[in-house]
Design a binder for these strands. Structure first.
Lengths: 251, 251
DNA sequence: ATAGCAATACCCAGTTTGGGTCATAGGCCG
DNA sequence: CGGCCTATGACCCAAACTGGGTATTGCTAT
């Protein structure tokens, strides 16, 4: 399958696509080629109020899309939820994944199954400074998905996402701004903020005065546009400026 | 290749590995299976002062590793640089990628080529809350890499990274105690805290009094053992109680 | 029915935050 | 050498947070 000329040409077609229509047709082709029926690719954002340069393309039925929009399923999409903290693709439904879902997630999953989404394969896409997203292939038949198509689906989905990102960015005229850069000292106070330390404690730990720690923090806030402390924590983790292990380390 | 039993068993072996030695042997096997000679997988961090729970494994020669450490190449690694803002894997060297490199990058790339890294394939790995990383396969022969192995390499690298992450995390002792459970209201105030809202703003948004929002937050803090607000944000994101998309979305 | 829990609401004293502004010292670079 | 950046330190002050309380309402499970 992967050795085939057809597979190579589908990948190339994503990069050659000039607009959403071209992407859609290529995806339709790919979905059929891989043996699935449905596809969806896009960012995990508020679909009723999508941010600039975000995108979402699928061949889901209008009935299901109506339900998703009307019931606001996209805010608690179980498949999107399972993408959190994950790089490798995953086939669903799978028992040990279902354990992580809450009531609302399961309800949505059941509604989807009624609408012919019995099983599928989803590829998460995370990139620093961008909205998380994913690419999903689904079938109306229940039962296990053939494992040998997964590498091809994973590979193709990644390139498809890459191609659509570029298209969406150039269409939006950005250039998303890259996350700010920080000095070593600034990164240190960021970690300490995430550990819940006060300015006085930071000063103690770093061997500097309370006011100096305060000053470093002020510059960090300013770099992010004077956002609030807690929002900063979420941002630096998301932007890859700090990692969970460092921030959550006991001390 | 991908259909082969051997490929499946290599993937499984990564998840079954109990320590770095097991990972190393499995990677050696995978590298040979894919037709490469060298492999390297790990986080893009300061190797002289690696953060907790970060990892790096490779079968590079000690001569090259010495040079990398001594000359601090890892701070300006051209391959790591090309991973920025990219999800799909990439084969190198490739002319349109080289354009993005600066002098120092090219110098390091040339030094690597002298040390037998003529061409390769690199898979970037980005995950919110973690350092970016990558997995590289390389060969001492110049010339184009056969395209048909790339999907297998991409797929296997993703699962390998996933398996090593889990190993490194449990070794770092994170995520041992099960996270507390929260009510819907509590989850709402958690999200609002992560968005930098004050108690008064939370009350406004939720249609309750400032003091009620305060009360919900107090119970959340208590559930985590009266930790500080900012530390809470890092914890709930790590524990999967809230996700980056819901916390960072504009509203 | 009654005990438990979630959600609501209010009080309060002490601490912390997050904006300013200002100043000095050292390092690096052209 | 001068300019720029970083790290350091200091002061001010209104607003917000923190962590104790108490108390009512309504729902649910035993």
């Amino acid at each position: 399958m992967i050795q085939s000329q057809e597979f190579q040409s589908i990948i190339q077609a994503f990069y050659d696509a000039k607009d959403e229509q071209g992407i859609y047709e290529t995806f339709d082709h790919l979905t059929y080629f891989l043996g699935f029926k449905y596809f969806a690719i896009g960012h995990h954002v508020d679909l009723l109020n999508p941010p600039i340069a975000s995108f979402g393309i699928s061949n889901y039925s209008s009935g299901w899309l109506n339900e998703v929009f009307h019931e606001r399923y996209f805010m608690d999409d179980p498949i999107h939820f399972l993408c959190n903290g994950r790089h490798a693709g995953f086939a669903w439904p799978e028992s040990h994944l279902l354990n992580r879902l809450n009531e609302r997630h399961r309800h949505i999953l059941e509604r989807g199954a009624l609408r012919n989404f019995q099983s599928g394969y989803t590829i998460p896409v995370h990139l620093p400074g961008e909205y998380s997203g994913s690419c999903t292939f689904a079938t109306p038949t229940s039962g296990t998905i053939a494992h040998n198509v997964l590498p091809a689906a994973f590979f193709a989905a990644s390139h498809a996402f890459e191609a659509i990102r570029r298209l969406a960015r150039t269409a939006a005229g950005l250039g998303l701004e890259p996350p700010p850069q920080f000095t070593d000292r600034q990164r240190e106070v960021i970690l300490l903020m995430g550990q819940g330390k006060t300015y006085a404690e930071m000063g103690m730990i770093l061997g500097i005065s309370r006011e100096t720690a305060h000053q470093h923090c002020k510059l960090v806030f300013r770099a992010y546009g004077n956002i609030q402390r807690c929002n900063l924590i979420a941002r630096v983790l998301y932007d890859g400026i700090a990692s969970f292990p460092e921030m959550l380390r006991k001390q």
